[in-house]
Amino acid sequence: MTEPVSISLTVNGATHDLVVAPRKTLADVLREDLGLTGTHVGCEHGVCGACTILIDGAPARACLTYAVQMEGHELTTIEAVAKSGELTPLQRALTQVHGLQCGFCTPGIVLTFEVWLRDNPDPDEAGVREALSGNICRCTGYQNIVKAVLAAAAEMRRGAGA
């Protein structure tokens, strides 16, 4: 139906019953219907990466996904990355080396790299830069973001080794 349909969405471990139009993107439903405005909307065609969230643990563009598709899937947004108020090593590193700047692109970067760093626990700078190509920072200060990802990787390796 092009008319609104009833769906149930599982976001950050909580289930929400919603009525949404099929054409409504997941990014808009997260922001407008659930008030989870940490998911930012930039380009709306998958290029900028600001709306990146996790679908069943894998990073995905919320602007290229319709909320109706997400029934039965586990969604994670930036609001649930820090556990009980404690920042992750990546989030800490971003604050410590001034990797946020204006902060608009940060949620997408955090969600992408929380997963990417599990796949690539010991990355080199070139690898980080290649992965970061999927997230556009219009402050254009990639230097500190790269530094933060490398610092977080080192921190996570120390944590895993301890």
Binding site: G49, I55, A58, P59, A60, T112, A131, G134
Partner: peptide, 9 residues
């Protein structure tokens, strides 16, 4: 192809 997040989907 594309980027890490794009390749997941």
């Amino acid at each position: 192809i594309g980027h890490y997040a794009i390749r997941q989907r």
